Computed example of a mutant assay.
Amino acid sequence: MTIRYGFLSTHPPTRCGLATFNAALAAHLGRAGVAGGVVRIAGHGDDLTSEPGVVHTWTAGTPAGWRDSAAALNSFDIAVVQHEYGIYPGRDGGEVLSVLRRLTVPSIVVLHTVLSRPTPSQKSLLEQIAGAAGAVVTITRAAHDRLLAGYAVDPAKISVIPHGASDYAGPPIRRHPQPHLLTWGLLGPGKGIEWALRGLARLQKLKPAPVYTVAGRTHPKVAELHGEAYRASLHQLGAALGIAHQVRYESAYFDDAALGKLIRSADVVVLPYDSTEQVTSGVLVEAVAARIPVVATAFPHAVELLTDGPGLLVPHKNPAALATAIRRILTQPALAATLRDRNGQAEPTLRWPVVAQRYRELAATLVTDHHPVAVAGT
Rank of each mutant, 00 (worst) to 15 (best):
A232I: 03
S233K: 04
S233I: 00
L234M: 01
H235Y: 06
Q236K: 07
Q236P: 08
A239C: 05
A239R: 15
L241N: 12
G242Y: 11
A244S: 03
A244D: 08
A244W: 01
Q246K: 03
Q246L: 07
Q246C: 01
V247K: 00
V247E: 00
D256C: 05
D256L: 12
A257C: 10
A257Y: 10
A257H: 12
A258S: 14
G260M: 04
L262M: 00
I263Y: 11
R264E: 04
D267I: 15
D267C: 11
V270T: 02
L271S: 02
L271V: 06
P272L: 07
Y273K: 11
D274I: 00
S275A: 10
S275G: 08
T276W: 11
T276F: 13
V279N: 09
V279E: 06
T280Y: 10
T280W: 08
G282S: 12
G282Q: 08
G282H: 02
V285D: 04
V285R: 10
V285Y: 13
E286F: 12
A289C: 11
A290T: 13
R291E: 15
I292G: 09
V294C: 13
V295Y: 05
A296I: 02
A298D: 14
A298L: 07
P300T: 02
A302Q: 04
A302R: 06
V303A: 04
V303R: 09
L306N: 02
T307E: 11
T307P: 14
T307C: 12
T307H: 14
P310D: 01
L312H: 04
L313K: 01
L313M: 00
L313E: 02
V314M: 03
V314A: 01
P315R: 15
P315L: 00
K317N: 08
K317L: 12
P319G: 05
A321C: 01
A321W: 10
A323H: 01
T324P: 00
I326G: 11
I326Y: 00
R327I: 01
R327P: 04
A334K: 13
L335I: 06
A336G: 11
R340H: 06
D341Y: 06
G344Y: 02
Q345G: 02
A346T: 11
A346S: 14
A346P: 06
P348F: 13
P348N: 08
R351C: 14
P353L: 05
V354S: 14
V354Y: 12
A356Y: 06
A356T: 11
E361W: 14
A363D: 12
V367R: 02
T368A: 15
T368G: 12
D369P: 04
H370G: 08
H370M: 04
H371K: 07
V373Y: 07
V375L: 09
